[in-house]
């Protein structure tokens, strides 16, 4: 993996990410898994760490993926790639099209885009559920129902899910709690 191609891949991801860091996740997942950079499981460890550390999640993910692919130079290249489209586009918008987001045509395009992005983020959610909670891949390999429905995984999922709905604490709290639960129960 050359530094330049990392930069270009993340430039492309930045260009098609609309509506915040989580929207970058499905694009990143498709690039990273499609290229065989990581397993799904490793990918979601990175998501956990990116959600639990300061900074925008998209930037944290880019840094992490770049680092694993090509060291510190790779993390810088990936992050710069991700922010380059922003720099170019925002400077153009600020200079020439300040009111562009109020244009009916832009609003119309966004009205189609936003629900689709929700669907895209749902693919990432589905993916992590089938890796971490109901391991569909393990089940396909073994064909044993015991590999699909693991009581302890479901228990941790229910506990974390319940406490997340009840107390909206910072994600890092749930990530830490789940790490401890994993060490004790899994």
């Amino acid at each position: 993996m050359t530094i330049l191609s990392l930069y270009l891949i993340f430039f492309k991801i930045g260009l098609f990410t609309i509506g915040g860091g989580l929207a970058a996740l499905p694009l990143l997942q498709s690039e990273a898994l499609g290229r065989g950079w990581f397993s799904s499981s490793e990918f979601f460890h990175m998501v956990a760490i990116s959600e639990s550390t300061p900074g925008p999640i998209g930037i944290n993910m880019a840094t992490y993926v770049g680092l694993e692919q090509a060291g510190i130079a790779g993390s810088v290249a990936a992050t710069l790639g991700l922010v380059s489209p922003s720099l170019i586009i925002i400077v153009i918008v600020a200079r020439y099209f300040f009111h562009f987001n109020e244009k009916p045509l832009v609003q119309a395009a966004l009205s189609g885009l936003r629900p689709a992005v929700t669907g895209l983020i749902a693919t990432a959610a589905w993916n992590v559920v089938t890796v971490a909670v109901i391991p569909v891949v393990d089940f396909r390999q073994s064909g044993q129902i015991g590999d699909l429905l693991k009581p302890l995984n479901l228990l941790i999922f229910a506990l974390i899910g319940f406490s997340y709905l009840k107390w909206k604490l910072h994600p890092v709290v749930y990530v830490a709690a789940a790490a401890v639960a994993g060490m004790v129960l899994l």
Binding site: L22, I121, V128, V133, A179
Partner: peptide, 20 residues
């Protein structure tokens, strides 16, 4: 621990999807 962490990510992402 990392296996447990992925379960938390499942919860966080599902709730983001619901919110979005």
């Amino acid at each position: 621990a990392l296996k447990g962490v992925n379960i938390a990510v499942a919860v966080l992402l599902l709730s983001s999807v619901w919110k979005f």
